[in-house]
Design a protein around this nucleic acid. Structure first.
Lengths: 295, 295
DNA sequence: ATCATTGATGCATGGCGTGCATAGATAAAA
DNA sequence: TTTTATCTATGCACGCCATGCATCAATGAT
């Protein structure tokens, strides 16, 4: 039996489709079919039920899937552990879109300077997909905002960050010295997609104050939210790190008081996977680089 | 990477010698050399230190050894679990020489009748080697006499068995109605090798009675001990199960009293390995078949 | 009824694992 | 020191088999 067979098998299992899986694996579909056939020969029974439009795992296949994942994880960890010199290696970082562009660049640059032989890979995605990637060992750690439903994952909070009210400069609230959430009630909100956890943070904060924000628009990028605010489509709440990167004078930021809306940034990783020295160094770097944010 | 590579690697690691390992694996030595080379290429560093007369694991090799064992165990278990139908399959039984010929035949025959599609494999060896085989997954269970130093192994006592004093028919003690250990003191002992745990059982029993048996001869087979006793080389202690198989009139068996020497037969297995339904059935069969011995 | 999708199969090919013979290196023996 | 023995590595040839291409068969969608 070959490890490629197991990789192939897992890909088909995940995709439920030979053709797509073959594309992912960059082999031809016939090659994949034959590889699975051979696996099934060796196991003495089929691992897939071939339906006309898709394939699904048989009972044996389900069993095999779990084992194959274990096996490949062990082997990948073994490779990593053997080649672990504390300097070179790969760190695959995941981050959500409302953190990545504002927080990661400086971190990556400084880490890269400290560990020039390390290769850094970044994946930007939503929290749920990042957690899945982390669980499956496709990334080494993820930087997300709490709370996260992270079963079997290790979570370490990094710092707390304020969410600032953003509005056009001519907005009625812009000149108010002390704004409370109640003051915002009359104004419509521009919010991110439901896919973004920042929306959840904002909405759940408002709900705690018995206030249901009226979202007039749902956008997929934070920069676009900022632009729409400038165009007076509504107000919004923006993480402090995003404000620091905003050099426009077409919008103004104000703190809310009593209570301040906050979000907690945390790093998440899979403790069942081997943690290379480089990886630990990266986490240490994260802690060190973020203590300045206070938290 | 191929699973054969891992198997090859483990064999070389265990043997410390390419040539011998190749013989064990039934491939040529050059093929083995090349397979290991390829593994080392894939890992980016050597797994063996080639010394002139033998090879030993490098640090990376030691790491890899543990992982390879895990991987192969998982895969073997997966195969077993997938093909586990409760009727067919393989049961590899180990037993020590002072148990195997007297106890196993009936067990095997009855189990084989109840599970005709099962294949039974027997390995007769000393306790320490059986435990090692059990740990390494080379056998599924072992039948031994307590006590056993069985770290990470499950132990289930089956029954207790008396050790009987055996002597020639014309021996002075043969006519004594009630023999105590002190009465045996003047007579020399015929004992098994140190390798056999039965010797340990006997010696430790005697020591508890502050009696050091004088072993005039150390033999490797229980039948030979019986024969030498017949030839008046000395007396000995023989498990009850061996007495039942002894149809000769050239020796007589007597119980010792206060206390009776006993040994406890137990079955040992590796709980970290997959326990097929057939395997569980075999253990149940063992329990059921031995409750008659009283225990 | 026609077209699209999907997995399986015939065929040719290239890579690679294997065995044989042997070299190279080193330790043991003479 | 020379000879012999032991052990791993390498050159070479062979054959298996995994792969890709073209295509088929089956089935669902339009």
């Amino acid at each position: 039996m070959d490890f490629d067979q197991l990789r192939y098998f897992l890909q088909v299992a995940e995709r439920g489709n030979f053709t797509r899986a073959a594309e992912d694996l960059r082999i031809s579909q016939p090659a994949l079919s034959r590889s699975i056939q051979k696996l099934e020969d060796e196991l003495g029974q089929p691992v897939f039920e071939r339906r006309t439009r898709s394939v699904s795992l048989t009972e044996a296949g389900t069993l095999m899937q779990a084992r194959a994942q274990q096996v490949l994880a062990i082997l990948e960890d073994a490779r990593a552990e053997i080649t672990d010199d504390g300097q070179s290696g790969r760190v695959r970082v995941g981050a959500i879109p409302t953190i990545a562009p504002y927080f990661l660049p400086k971190i990556l640059q400084r880490f890269s300077a400290a560990f020039p032989r390390a290769s850094l890979l970044v994946q930007e995605s939503t929290t749920d997909l990042l957690l899945k990637s982390c669980t499956q060992g496709e990334i080494d750690l993820a930087i997300v905002a709490l709370p996260v439903p992270a079963k079997y994952l290790e979570i370490e909070p990094l710092f707390e960050e304020e969410l600032l009210l953003v509005m056009p400069p001519n907005h009625p609230l812009a000149d108010k010295s002390r704004i409370r959430l109640g003051d915002v009630k009359p104004f419509p909100f521009v919010l991110l997609d439901e896919a973004h956890c920042l929306s959840d943070n904002i909405v759940s904060f408002c709900r705690q104050q018995s206030f249901n924000p009226v979202a007039v628009e749902r956008i997929s990028q934070l920069t676009m939210v900022q632009e729409l605010v400038s165009l007076s489509h509504g107000v919004s709440m923006i993480p402090a790190m995003a404000r620091q990167c905003d050099e426009s004078d077409r919008r103004v930021y104000r703190s809310l008081a009593n209570p301040k809306p906050m979000r907690t940034i945390a790093v998440v990783w899979n403790p069942y996977r081997f943690q290379s020295r480089l990886l630990k160094a990266f986490r240490a770097h994260l802690r060190q680089s973020t203590c300045s944010h206070g938290g």
